[in-house]
């Protein structure tokens, strides 16, 4: 116990995993362990954030992340307000900062921000007094997704160090990929990025990961395959010729799946393009951790919300 209490969480915001220490990451995961148990009770609620107000500020479509944060907050007894705006604030003439200051004036303790612009959460954190939790900023980071992926891998394999993890598909547009890269490399996993050069530029190698364009050359060696969603809304011009050709070279098809390790663990941050990057049989099959990821997301987000308010 003495050991545990030696670490003190000091971050008021969770903006990115890039600058988190291993201790901080492990601390979130153990906090999530503690909260996971709450979900198994008949009364699924603890008073940890009673009297606190959380605003779910979503400038992009999201079902799972928004619901997950809302549920996490209500299990901690916080009040939840939803603020969804499909268009970015710029198109209305009001800046994000103005919008946020207005909402904050109503008395808010935590901003959960999903925004199409990279850096939006960091910018916001410099202009408000309350906590900011990044729920995805453009192609930059999605730190709670990275943490829940980590949590799920650790749960499945008992450890993360030494695991070989392939992240496959549209890497360049993916905030999930970036958060996973930081978390996994910090914890000693080997990360292999797989995708066409148009969606996976060589610069990623400088982040300490492997860049591979031939999925089949690595598929038999990896413990985890994290299939990313092809983000049609972010892909500008043709970064691959057709969906059919993408699936042929980078889809997790039944033919490819048979060449995987027997105990391979299949992940996907959702929402899935079934039949494009992943076949339904695999997504719904016994090796799939996709729904476990969603379930763990709740505990991880409870942990994050709890910790950032403790640091206020």
């Amino acid at each position: 116990m003495a050991n545990k209490s030696a670490f003190r969480w000091k971050r008021k915001h969770l903006l990115a995993l890039e600058d988190l220490t291993v201790d901080e990451i492990m601390h979130v995961l153990s906090q999530a362990d503690a909260f996971k148990e709450v979900s198994t009770r008949s009364v699924k609620k603890v008073p940890a954030l009673r009297g606190k107000v959380l605003v779910n500020c979503f400038f992009e479509d999201s079902t799972r992340t928004r619901t997950s944060f809302a549920l996490a907050a209500s299990r901690l007894s916080a009040d939840v307000v939803d603020f969804s705006e499909k268009t970015s604030s710029t198109s209305k003439g009001e800046t994000l900062i103005d919008t946020a200051r207005n909402i904050e004036a109503m008395g808010v303790d935590i901003f959960v921000l999903r925004h199409p612009a990279a850096g939006a959460a960091e910018t916001l954190s410099r202009h408000v007094k309350c906590s900011v939790v990044n729920a995805g900023d453009g192609a930059h980071e999605h730190p709670t997704q990275g943490l829940l992926d980590l949590y799920t891998m650790r749960e499945r394999f008992g450890k993360v160090a030494g695991l070989k993890v392939a992240i496959v598909g549209d890497i360049v547009n993916s905030r999930v990929a970036r958060s996973n890269i930081w978390a996994l490399t910090k914890l000693g996993a080997e990360v292999i990025l797989v995708g066409p050069p148009t969606l996976l530029p060589k610069t990623f190698e400088k982040l300490g990961v492997k860049v591979i364009h031939d999925f089949d050359s690595v598929i038999g060696q990896v413990d985890v395959i994290n299939m990313l969603r092809v983000q049609f809304e972010r892909i500008k011009s043709s970064q691959f010729p057709t969906v059919r050709e993408f699936t042929r070279f980078f889809g997790l098809t039944a033919e490819r799946f048979v060449r995987c390790k027997k105990d391979v663990f299949i992940m996907h941050p959702g929402p899935m393009n079934r039949g494009i990057e992943i076949s339904s049989a695999i997504a719904d099959g016994p090796q799939s951790g996709i729904l476990t990821q969603v379930a763990n997301g709740l505990a991880v987000r409870m942990a994050v919300l709890y910790l950032v308010t403790q640091a206020q």
């Binding site: 990279a118 850096g119 900023d137 192609a139 930059h140 360049v172 970036r178 610069t203 990623f204």
Partner: peptide, 17 residues
């Protein structure tokens, strides 16, 4: 063009075009 900063390692890290 159409990006927000120089293409390279920092843009890759920041997720900016």
């Amino acid at each position: 063009s159409g990006g927000a900063m120089n293409a390279g390692l920092m843009a890759t890290k920041l997720g900016l075009p």
